[in-house]
C-alpha cells in the first residue's frame, strides 16, 4: 500500500509534468464551453435541441472529449510505453508490483475525468445557466458506466498492442470514433439518424449523459450496453495483458 502511494505520487507528478495531456483533456472542453457560451445563439432555446440551448445540448459532447482523451488516448499509450521500455518488468524485480503502476494510472485517469466533469458542470452552471444534472443518480450512473466502458477499451488497446507505436496506431482510430459518435466533431443534430442511434450505444454513451443531464433518467438499455462493453472489453484486456 505504501509503495502504491509512492507510485501514485510520482506518476501524478509525471502526468502533470507532461502538461499537454492534462491541458487538452481538461482545459480544451472548458475553453470550447466558454466560446459557445459567449455566443448569444449558443444560449438560446431551440426546438431543434429538444427545447434546450445549444450549449446544454453540446455539453455532454464536451465531456466526451475529456473521457476519450483520458481513457482511450493517454492511458493505453502510457501503459504500452511502460511495457515496451521495461518499466513494468523492472518494477517486477522489486518488492513493489507492476500492478501498482497500472492501478496508479487508472486512478489518474479517473481523477482526470472527475475533475474534468466537475469543472465542466460547474462552469456551465455558474457562467452560462447550464442546469446541474437534473437526474443526479442517473447522470452519475451514466458517467460511471460510460467511463468504465471507455477505460476497458483503453486497457484492451494496451493489452493487444505490442509496442508503444502500435498502441498509438490503435488508440487514434478508437479515439476518433469515440469523438465522432460522441458528437464532438459534428454536433449530432447534423448527423443522419442512424449514426445518432449508433452513437447512443458507442462508449461513453453520450445520449444517456444528455438525458440525465437535461431531462430525466437515462434509458436502461443505454446503460446496460455500456456495462456489457465494460465487462467484455475489461475481461478480454485482463486475459491478454502482458507485463513484458
Amino acid at each position: 500500500m505504501h509503495a502504491f502511494g509512492q507510485i501514485l505520487k510520482i506518476e501524478t507528478r509525471l502526468y502533470l509534468r507532461d502538461f499537454a495531456s492534462p491541458l487538452i483533456t481538461i482545459a480544451l472542453p472548458l475553453a470550447l464551453l466558454v466560446v459557445f457560451g459567449l455566443i448569444p445563439a449558443g444560449r438560446e432555446r431551440n426546438p431543434q435541441f429538444g427545447d434546450r440551448a445549444f450549449i446544454e445540448y453540446f455539453a455532454p459532447s464536451l465531456l466526451v472529449i475529456t473521457l476519450a482523451m483520458a481513457a482511450v488516448n493517454i492511458l493505453p499509450v502510457v501503459l504500452a510505453t511502460y511495457r515496451e521500455r521495461g518499466v513494468l518488468r523492472r518494477l517486477a524485480t522489486t518488492p513493489a508490483s507492476p500492478a501498482a503502476l497500472l492501478a496508479a494510472q487508472l486512478v489518474i485517469s479517473l481523477a482526470t475525468i472527475l475533475v474534468g466533469a466537475v469543472l465542466l458542470i460547474g462552469v456551465g452552471w455558474l457562467a452560462f445557466d447550464v442546469p446541474l444534472p437534473r437526474h443526479p443518480l442517473g447522470f452519475t450512473l451514466a458517467l460511471v458506466l460510460g467511463t468504465a466502458a471507455l477505460l476497458a477499451l483503453g486497457l484492451l488497446v494496451a493489452a493487444v498492442a505490442r509496442t508503444a507505436k502500435a498502441a498509438q496506431g490503435m488508440a487514434v482510430p478508437v479515439f476518433m470514433v469515440t469523438m465522432f459518435f460522441g458528437g464532438v466533431y459534428l454536433p449530432r443534430f447534423l448527423l443522419p439518424d442512424f449514426l445518432v442511434r449508433i452513437g447512443d450505444y458507442t462508449p461513453p454513451g453520450v445520449q444517456a449523459l444528455l438525458d440525465a443531464w437535461t431531462a430525466d433518467a437515462p434509458q436502461p438499455l443505454h446503460l446496460a450496453i455500456m456495462t456489457v462493453i465494460a465487462v467484455i472489453a475489461g475481461a478480454t484486456a485482463a486475459k491478454l495483458f502482458r507485463w513484458e
Binding site: A3, Q6, R13, L14, R85, V87, R90, T93, P95, A96
Partner: peptide, 27 residues
C-alpha cells in the same frame, strides 16, 4: 535481491533523485 535488467528504462521525465527515492520506498 537487487536486479538490474538488460534494456530496462525509466519514464523520460522521471528525475534521478525521484527514481531513487521511489525505489527506496519499496524496501
Amino acid at each position: 535481491l537487487g536486479v538490474q535488467l538488460q534494456e530496462s528504462q525509466l519514464p523520460d521525465r522521471l528525475r534521478v533523485a525521484e527514481a531513487l527515492e521511489l525505489y527506496a520506498s519499496f524496501y
